[in-house]
Simulated assay, not measured.
Amino acid sequence: MWHGWPIERVLILFTGLAFAMIAVQVTLFHSRQNFRHWAMWLPVIELPLFAVTAIILSFQNAGWLRWLFAFMMVVGMAGGVFGAYLHTVGVGQRVGGFSQGQNFQVGPPIILPLLMTAVAALGLIALYWG
């Protein structure tokens, strides 16, 4: 089954699986915080949609699905940057703010939304590679 798959197809499948794993982690983190901010729902809803779209696209190369995937990856990149901003603000709102290094360890993870941005960028690179 894997013999003959171009690297673009493998990377789109990897992107979908990565989004699925990130979705689980983000859902656990945001539910632990009781979804205190409306924006916490965004990645919980969109990441599984990104994952399913990428996985389906890796098996069914339809033009409309490629367009939808590209659109979702742009949304994912923007959402990751927005999430990193919100997480940075969240670290600053903790007692002691940015001057307390511990706030970067126990506060909202700034890198996790940027991981979402990076995986979405990988999806776009894979889509337009050839």
Rank of each mutant, 00 (worst) to 15 (best):
P48Q: 04
V95M: 12
I56K: 08
L114N: 04
P6H: 09
R9I: 02
G107P: 06
L124D: 01
W64A: 13
V95H: 10
L115T: 11
F59G: 15
R36G: 03
G92E: 07
V26T: 14
H3E: 11
I125L: 12
L42D: 05
Q100I: 09
R9N: 07
L65S: 06
H87S: 12
G92P: 01
V119I: 15
F50Q: 12
M77D: 02
F14T: 11
L49V: 15
M72P: 00
F29E: 15
L112V: 14
I110E: 06
F71N: 10
V81S: 02
L86D: 08
V52W: 08
R66L: 09
R9P: 00
A18W: 06
P6L: 01
L57A: 14
W41P: 04
M72Y: 09
I55L: 11
I12G: 03
W2R: 12
N61G: 01
G4F: 04
L57T: 06
F71A: 15
R36N: 11
F104Y: 15
A84T: 06
A23Q: 05
L122S: 06
V75W: 02
V91P: 04
L65K: 04
L17H: 01
V75Q: 13
F19V: 03
I12N: 05
V75F: 08
V95E: 14
M116G: 15
F29R: 14
L13S: 07
Y128M: 03
W38E: 10
L127C: 02
T117P: 10
M21R: 08
N34Y: 07
A121V: 09
W129M: 13
A70P: 01
F35E: 07
V44C: 13
T53D: 05
W38K: 09
V81C: 08
L17P: 02
V26R: 10
W67V: 14
T53H: 04
L57I: 04
L42Y: 15
P109H: 03
W67N: 10
L57N: 10
R66D: 11
S99P: 00
L124V: 01
G63V: 10
G107R: 05
F14W: 11
L57H: 13
T27R: 09
M116D: 09
G96K: 05
P113W: 00
P108M: 15
R9D: 05
L68W: 10
A54N: 13
F104E: 01
Q93H: 12
M40S: 11
P108W: 14
L28S: 05
T53Y: 01
M40V: 00
W67G: 00
H37I: 05
